[in-house]
Structure formats: C-alpha cells, structure tokens
Simulated scan of single mutants.
Amino acid sequence: MYEEKANIELQRWQRKIEKSGSLSKKYTKIIQNKVNEKIPEKVHEVFTTSVKNMVHATLVGAEYTTTTIPVEGATLEEREVRLEQKVKAYKKTAAVEGAGTGAGGILLGMVDFPLLLSIKMKFLFEAASLYGYDVKDYRERLYILYLFQLAFSSDEKKKEVLKKIKDWEEIKRNLPDKETYLQQIDWKEFQLEYRDHIDLIKLLQVIPGFGAIVGAFANYHFLEVLGETAKNSYRMRVLGGGS
C-alpha cells in the first residue's frame, strides 16, 4: 500500500516538472539571460571556477563518502521515514546558517554560498545511502549532481535533467570512466542555472536588518525542495521507472 501511494506521488511530481513554466518564470529567465550576456566573460570564468572547485571537492571528497554507508534490507517506507527525519534536521541547520550569514550583510552573505552548497551536497549523499546506493561509486556521485540540477535549475533545464533521471540505468552503463567523467560537465551552464535560480532571494539576503529573515526562510525552502527532489528521484529507481 505504501509503494502504491509513493508511486502516485511520484507521477504527480513528474507531471509538475514536465508542465510548461509560467510566463513570469519565462520572462524572468529572459531578463537573466540578457544580464548574463552583459557580464564580461572573465567574471563568468571566476564564478564557474568557484562552483566547479566546490562541487568537484564535494563529489570526490572523502569527508562525505567515508561517512555514508548504504542502508540494506529496509522497506521503502522505512527508508523514507528516516529520510524525512534527515530533511527536518537539514532544514533547521540550513535555516540557522542562513539567518547567521544573512544578519552579517554582504560579506557574510557571500560566505553563505559555499556553506549552503556544502549542506545541500551532504544531504544528498546521506539520502543516497538511505535508499541503499553506495556513494563511493562515482556514478552515484554523478547522479547526485543531476539531482542538484533538477532541484535548482530553470524549468526547461529541469525537463532535460528529468529525462536523464528516467533513463539513468541506460546512461549509467555508458558513462565515461572514473578519471574523466567530471570533464563531461558543462560547469558554466551549471553555475548559471544555479545562480539564476537563487539570485533574487539571495540578493535580498544581504539587506541589513532584513537579511537574517530572508536567509533563514530561503535556506529552509531550498532544503525542502531538495528533499522532495531526492525522495522522488530515488523512488523512480526503487519502484522501477517513471511515467
């Protein structure tokens, strides 16, 4: 019965992603694209390198892979009860971090970017393990990166990534080797999608006297979205595919 309920929720989640984005979101994306075109390429390179280094360190960092052990022999319901506990804990952690850096203005607001990214990635590593997947396998770490993109990208990019998630077992069989798989990632696109997705709310976070409230709310919301994305994406694999 639980799996039937989970499958219904999964289909509903997929339909939500596959629906066309609202006009306001499309208009916002057009504006963001125009602004990005005005930014010098060297500035983009700095952002891209920063994101690449942070994500690369997370994906290959032993501090995450050595502390996560795949959960074996549990039912889907048992796994997801534990996942919900993790989501609640990480939402609180992210909210406290966002409030602290938001209260500090621009300088601490800049610190929030790598801290929040680290919290999000650590959560995804733990989520993978709860569903029984071994994050020591580089292919599972690449899947985690796709989940990150699925949660924090434009509507069109989400549709593209969802297709990869649906076809993951086939993609997994044809991946490049461990030494070269990170070279296949378009880091500039990754950082632009992520930055544009969180841009407006993070700008509000650096406003003195207002940033703490925005920072706490934003980070709490981001972890909530990431939790929903992880749950349904791993459900897709456990239950045998999507619609």
Rank of each mutant, 00 (worst) to 15 (best):
M121H: 11
K164C: 03
V87M: 11
K163T: 12
L226W: 10
E63Y: 08
M121R: 05
L162C: 00
T67W: 09
S24Q: 14
G105W: 05
S24W: 15
A62F: 05
R237P: 11
N174L: 10
L23K: 09
D137A: 01
L147P: 09
F148G: 03
R237F: 08
A216H: 03
V87K: 06
I213Y: 14
I171R: 14
L115A: 12
K5M: 12
E170Y: 09
T66C: 08
N53Y: 07
L203T: 14
Y133R: 02
K86W: 08
H221D: 15
V206E: 05
G211M: 06
R235W: 10
S20I: 09
A127N: 02
T67Q: 15
K92Q: 07
K42Y: 14
I8Q: 08
E97P: 00
G61F: 00
R15V: 13
I69G: 15
H197E: 11
S118Q: 06
L226M: 13
L115W: 11
Q11L: 10
M1S: 13
G227Y: 04
K34H: 10
V214H: 02
T48H: 08
L59E: 01
D155C: 01
P114R: 03
G61L: 00
R195D: 07
F190A: 03
I185P: 02
S22T: 15
L124H: 06
M110I: 13
H221S: 14
A57Y: 09
S129P: 01
K5E: 08
A94Y: 02
G104M: 01
T48D: 02
D177F: 11
K188T: 06
L10H: 06
E169P: 06
K136W: 00
E45H: 07
V43N: 08
K42D: 10
K34S: 15
K159D: 02
Q184H: 15
L182W: 01
T68D: 13
F125S: 08
D155V: 06
E193P: 03
G73V: 06
K136R: 10
L59W: 01
F113P: 05
V96Q: 04
F222L: 12
K166G: 01
D199W: 14
D137R: 00
Q32D: 08
E3I: 02
K91G: 00
Q183P: 03
G100S: 09
G209Q: 08
G102H: 04
F190P: 00
N232S: 05
Y27D: 15
R79L: 03
R15W: 11
V51Y: 14
E9M: 02
E41Y: 13
S154V: 02
T75Q: 11
H221A: 14
T229N: 06
E156I: 08
F148N: 04
E156Q: 08
N7H: 11
L200N: 12
K120M: 15
L239Y: 07
A99P: 01
K164I: 10
G100W: 02
S233K: 04
E18S: 10
M236E: 13
N219T: 10
A212H: 05
F222N: 06
F123I: 04
K34R: 07
L10I: 03
A103K: 09
K163L: 06
Q205P: 03
S154W: 00
A151V: 14
R195Y: 09
T66P: 04
K164P: 00
K136C: 01
K38H: 10
L83Y: 01
Y181M: 04
Y138R: 03
K38N: 09
V225D: 07
Q85R: 15
G100P: 01
G73M: 12
E63Q: 09
L130N: 00
R173N: 14
R237L: 13
